[in-house]
Design a protein around this nucleic acid. Sequence first.
RNA 1: GGACGGUUAGCUCAGUUGGUAGAGCGUCUCGUUUACACCGAGAAGGUCACAGGUCCGAGUCCUGUACCGUCCACCA
Length: 711
Amino acid sequence: MDTRYDHNRSEAEIYESWENSGFFNPDNLSGKPFTIIMPPPNANGSLHIGHALFVTLEDIMIRYYRMRGRKALWLPGADHAGFETQVVYNKKLEREGRSFWDVPKKDLYDEIKKFTLENKQYMESQLRKLGSSCDWSREKFTLDEDIKDIVYETFESLYKDGLVYRAERPVNWCVKHQTTLSDLEIKHEERADKLYYVKYSLEDGNGFVEIATVRPETIPADVAVAVHPKSRFKEFVGKNVLNPITGKPIPVISDASVDPDFGTGALKITPYHDSADFNIWVAHKKEIPDLPVSVIDRYGKLTDEAGKELRDLKIKEARDKSLELLGNKLIKEEEYSHEVAVCYKCGSVIEPRVMMQWFVRMTDAPAKGKSLRDLAVNAVKSGKIKIIPARFGKVLMHWLMNLRDWNISRQIVWGIRIPVWYCENDHVIISEPVPEKCPECNSNNFKAEEDVFDTWFSSGQWPFATLMTKRGDFQKFYPTDVMETGWDILPFWVMRMIMFGIYRTGKVPFKTVYLHGLVRDKDRQKMSKSKGNVINPLEVAETYGMDALRMSLIIGNTAGMDPIISEDKIRGYRNFTTKIWNASRFVLMDYTEPEKKPKLSARDRKNIRDMEAAKNKVSRFIEKFDFNHAAETAYHYFWHTFADVVIEESKPRLKSDNERDAAAARETLVTILLGSLKMLHPFMPFVTETVYQELPKKVRREKFLMVEHWQ
RNA sequence: GGACGGUUAGCUCAGUUGGUAGAGCGUCUCGUUUACACCGAGAAGGUCACAGGUCCGAGUCCUGUACCGUCCACCA
């Protein structure tokens, strides 16, 4: 054995031999299946420390259960990550001095595809470096044709069941990215604005209603004024007031959702630029003669409907101009701090717009069966899905109870096109590619739906979609055992996988959800490129070894907690790697295979039992998803029992003239070493496998430690 | 405005049915022996945020308070 362990050389070699062995593929294993579907990383950049964390957690489980004699499947994948990737690519073009909007759509798609596939390949090489013992032969990409076909089927089935519908409704529009976003993709930020108090005079000249607004530029789109039934303006209900900018009469209506204590207790109703207003408008359509109009276009500019004074102005300019137009109808303005919806990516203010979009119905089931929400609620409540840590079960419930219908249409190029065609008579045909003729009117003149799916609509189907693409896999591996992912995507992904999984297959997609946290630096800061505190997992692994990095991500971390990681910590586990190497080297230094099995002393037998006890403890911890204590137990046993005590005590015996006793000592050491390597292998696969390959053939039962039997 | 989490040794964190406080790193002292100084032996260091309560007994359960953090939210 070399005096020093060269992790850089060893890791690459070992991984290659594992991969070539075929044991990553469960078809070459026997036993009861154990399945994890890997959360497919976004193929739009390189892997960060968070990926290293999830890979380590999942690899620990897979390696452990593989050694326990299970048919272990870890199915890897990559996500095209529609909007996310488009944003990344947009920035890349900006850096290159090109404009995203000048590239023709078709070319853009091809460019992003090329970019994504390159990244995907790079990412796969990084996953290998991390030690992922996943089955590459089953790797899936979210844009694979067979995956897309399953996504289309789900969409069609949802449509037939009335769980997907198309409607003109208020949606979140990002002016910068030129697309709608789901409610989950917007954040709320505190902004300092002004609250303007505006006088809406009664048509009959007898008084006025005072209204507070932050958006005077939308006044031309007002269709009514709403007051609380008990407000001081209640006597005006049924009368008309004059729009203070256009002069048009609009009715005063009464609605209980107006807060009598906020502002003036009266609200202007601008249905196309505020979703609350839209709901009030829907409820009071009969009392409101005017149809709503849009006065702000997709670029955030005022439209013709806003009148010639405001037309073509940007929102901010239009705001100033509208104040000018209000003249003495502007009573006062006050400083006002409030929460504004912004795009989670670029931070620009989300413009509520009313658009024709596709929605998934979440909370009721018009046709048959249970709502998507209820499917998920029942699975969680009944315990068919266990969530670790348990408190996230409550968080998930909270999400489920507050669901609204989900807008799945995106006006971006990078994604799976919604497989819908509209014939000239406006019939909807779900098909891909284009149908021959409309089944309802036989027309063969179609207009394609141009929007693509929200990425989460397709990735929400990942567990069953991936397994349905290979014959026999679904029956064998579904439901999967564990879904291991970050708590930050609980509502985006986990919740939807549960709903779609049960909807499509009648079974939960996974039995346990294990949620990890966000990796932070030693000052508890989120890692980001702009803060310069990013730890590149591949770089630190080159310095300290992947085993050290893996240990530092696991130890001192519990489910759902944000792990803290620093270079000091990684260095500490590098020292442990060295310790494993040197202790092993010592044990194997003078090891000679005994001609007959030496008789072990009572003390020897006890030492071996202690090792077995530690190994059993590791098993129990892993099975309880307590990886922290599992790793700590193995670490502590190896260093402070095996190395510090057992090896030290053996030294005089090894030196002594009593050859029988020396042989017993050697035998004990090598037995304990093998057991120790096993219990450390899930956590530190590289160094343990490297040492295993140095063990004498008679001691080894298998070609690889990876497939040694745990016991 | 709601919800959730945290507060334990200088630092980062464990503490699984309530039973006299644990680990790693750091600090200090000593030590070079058949692996390893990326080492060994040993030591110091905590009124478990605060205030009540339940209990024979509370870091652990209950109530409240403070501070820190996170998430959600159509009060214009």
